[in-house]
Simulated scan of single mutants.
Amino acid sequence: MGSILVTGATGNVGKYVVNYLNGRDSDVVVAGHRIQELEKSYPGMKAVRLDFEDPSTFEEALHGVDRVFLMRPPQIGDAEVFRPFVEAMKAQSVRLVSFLSLMGVERNPFPPHHKIEKMIEEASIPYAHIRPGFFMQNLTGVHAEEIRKDREIFIPAGNSKVSFIDAEDIGKAIAHVLLNPDAHQHVAYTLTGPEALDYVDIANQLTLLTGEKITYAKPSMLHYRSRYINERGLSPEYVNVTMALYLMTRLGTAKAITHTFKELTGDEPRTFFEFTKAHLHEFERKDDGDSTNDPFDLKEANV
């Protein structure tokens, strides 16, 4: 077989896809915007620059490739940006593209993931859409600033429940799919953790494990949008996508639990409690100068 192209290879999911593929009789090509970061993270591995808004980067990235892990950089909200790359994969006769999508997106046409899924299907490329629940890493990533500084979870999800999943588990499942492309064609897999929690549950678990009182702020959509754009400095396009997802979450779209991860890998998914114990350092208080407003550091957060 040919090589496997892993886009977003230094991101929350991409790095685990690479780790689980590496050493399993697979030739991996890591791709992203920052070639030096890729070469530093994966010495000895082929690294290529890939910019979905620059078709001149496609030929080198896809050379010798027959399988692709595709993720949408969070700063790109327009699904049409991906059409030239999808056409390039079709021209390459890619055997399988595993696209990192969203849980419930088949019933929600608003996030760009919905249109990208349809774009891949209409191109007649064999696909295995991966539709995970919300990443546990959302709490250690984009939403960690308020937890560290204010000891509160500032997410406009109302009273909704979420079946969080560890990004490492997602990467492991994707690696299984890419290593067996003939067994996973024209399918969509919804991956979740083993339990559905609301954000009060999350705050209580964080309180127990950190030893400090952490609360759920339960902000309104407008309060959230104002803070994340005007104070956090994130792009309106990115924040609007997250608002659409949290609106759907309020309608109960993120609470279902599946057993697909175990069916694909043979392992049990990680619980949020286990994840938090392993990442307690991410919730330690930091000085104001330690926070970041760089939206590119969001990697492939799924909110």
Rank of each mutant, 00 (worst) to 15 (best):
V303I: 15
H114R: 10
E282G: 10
K115C: 06
Q185I: 04
E145Q: 12
A9F: 05
P55Q: 07
N204W: 03
L191E: 01
T190Y: 01
A203D: 08
T10V: 05
V30L: 05
F110H: 14
E80M: 14
F283Q: 13
T140L: 09
F134I: 07
G266A: 03
V241Y: 07
G289I: 12
I155A: 03
N230K: 05
G11F: 03
N293G: 14
A91G: 13
Y246D: 14
D27G: 02
D51N: 11
L298C: 13
R232I: 02
S163M: 04
A175M: 10
E121S: 13
T190S: 02
Q205D: 09
L208P: 12
P181W: 00
F273K: 12
K46C: 11
E39F: 03
I170Y: 00
Y42W: 09
K90M: 13
I153G: 07
Q137G: 07
T7W: 13
N293W: 07
N293F: 02
T292Q: 15
I130M: 13
T253Y: 13
S93K: 10
V97T: 15
E59Q: 11
T260L: 08
V6G: 04
G158Q: 07
V30K: 05
D54V: 07
L298T: 12
A128P: 03
Q137C: 05
I76A: 03
L247S: 09
L209M: 09
R250D: 01
R151G: 00
G8Q: 08
D287M: 15
G211W: 09
R67Q: 07
A91D: 12
I4H: 10
F82V: 01
D267Y: 12
Y189G: 03
G44S: 02
Y127W: 14
Y246S: 11
R285M: 01
M45S: 06
Y216S: 06
R49V: 05
A61E: 00
F99L: 03
R232V: 04
I130A: 02
D78C: 06
G14V: 00
R95Y: 13
A144S: 13
Y42V: 05
E282S: 15
L264V: 06
Q137P: 11
R107K: 08
K161P: 00
K161N: 06
E152P: 02
P219M: 08
H176I: 08
T258E: 10
D51H: 08
P156Q: 02
M45F: 07
A278S: 12
L62K: 05
E237C: 11
E300C: 12
R148I: 14
F261M: 10
A91H: 07
T207K: 04
V30I: 10
R285C: 00
I125S: 12
Q36N: 15
R151E: 03
N22H: 11
R72H: 07
D150W: 06
E146V: 15
G289N: 15
L70P: 01
D287I: 14
Q75G: 08
P111G: 01
Q36D: 15
T207P: 12
H281C: 05
G32Y: 13
T271L: 05
T190C: 00
K172Y: 12
K115M: 12
P132V: 05
E121I: 15
G32A: 10
K90C: 03
Y246P: 11
T215W: 09
R232P: 08
D198V: 10
E106P: 03
P156T: 01
S124P: 06
F99S: 03
Y189N: 04
D294W: 02
T140N: 06
D287K: 15
P84F: 14
R95L: 13
